[in-house]
Amino acid sequence: MSEHVDIDKQVRIYFLVFGALMVGTAATVGAYYLDVSVPVALTIGLFIASVKASLVACFFMHLIDEKKIIYWTLALTVAFFIALMALPLLTSVTDQVGEFAEVEAHEAH
């Protein structure tokens, strides 16, 4: 992080981020009690978690003001992470395509 940082301003931001994280936590728990379908609940829950995680990373971990080498390292990590998450999802899609093809073949007979 920059050497010439205004610590007092930083501290005010830390408290604002803390407040936002607490509100986010309350919103996550509140969303649990909403009468919505599982996909909608998943979307809401993971969206709030992603916003909270971004706040922690940007402000508490100082990523908002970091050197390029860290950004490039993290960009590479994110690419591998997405590939890792895509593997089970792709497996699921190919399984479903396989099942569909089996049904089609069975009906053709």
Partner: peptide, 14 residues
């Protein structure tokens, strides 16, 4: 902390 932010909704709420 960041890891827990995802573990909490994934296991307890969703």
């Amino acid at each position: 902390d960041l890891v827990w932010i995802f573990l909490f909704p994934v296991f307890y709420l969703l």
